[in-house]
Design a protein around this nucleic acid. Sequence first.
DNA 1: ATATCATATAAGCATTGACTTATGCATCTG
DNA 2: CAGATGCATAAGTCAATGCTTATATGATAT
Lengths: 110, 110
Amino acid sequence: MELTELETFLKAAGDGSRLKILQQLTSGPVCVCDLTPLVGLTQPAVSQHLKRLKDAGIVTGEKRGRWTFWSLDQLHPLHDIMVGLLSRVPAPGRTVADLEAAGEKGCCGV
Amino acid sequence: MELTELETFLKAAGDGSRLKILQQLTSGPVCVCDLTPLVGLTQPAVSQHLKRLKDAGIVTGEKRGRWTFWSLDQLHPLHDIMVGLLSRVPAPGRTVADLEAAGEKGCCGV
DNA sequence: ATATCATATAAGCATTGACTTATGCATCTG
DNA sequence: CAGATGCATAAGTCAATGCTTATATGATAT
């Protein structure tokens, strides 16, 4: 692995909002509209973060109907390390699962 | 470990010049004047990178005479992970050891 | 077909970041 | 002591980043 590749990975992961997104993705695929309330940003902001993560090869997006479901890309050479790092951080206040448990149905109804 | 702490770590490590510095530090303490030719920047630039790394708790500097010797801080909670990441990257073209082997004595004469 | 919904992209703006040169401050050396 | 050396800090510049609002695209629903 080249130094610039490691740099790209670290730069992409080194952002609070993106870390929140990645943390949520460790629980499985999520669509943008479910991530938006989680990170407290507008939808375009979340999409841009996802693009950054995608360009770094950390996540992949699968279009299904109207929605794009984002997941951690398990093929990334540092995937396991990323998951390991995220596991050290306490779960966020409100995960997508929490929102659903509270009756606040996710936008994509999954 | 809090999310912001992880973010600080990733931001500090997510820079090519700083990665080169960290890579060199895995071989032991080095002074600024030896790092400067290695990263190809001016001395103030290197000092500023070191400050950034120090503020993140990744490195420590020990003043000895005229020189400051910088090392990886083994007390950092992510020290081992950092070393693991750096080990994935091929060694730079010219390490401090190489410079010395070529007869180019380090500035601090160590 | 028309409207709606989920998402992506574009443009603009404020902030941060990474450098440079210039300078200050210790510490050694002659 | 005077000068040189190693390093840190200050100030200024330019590019990159993270947001916003506005808009385009494409799929679904009516």
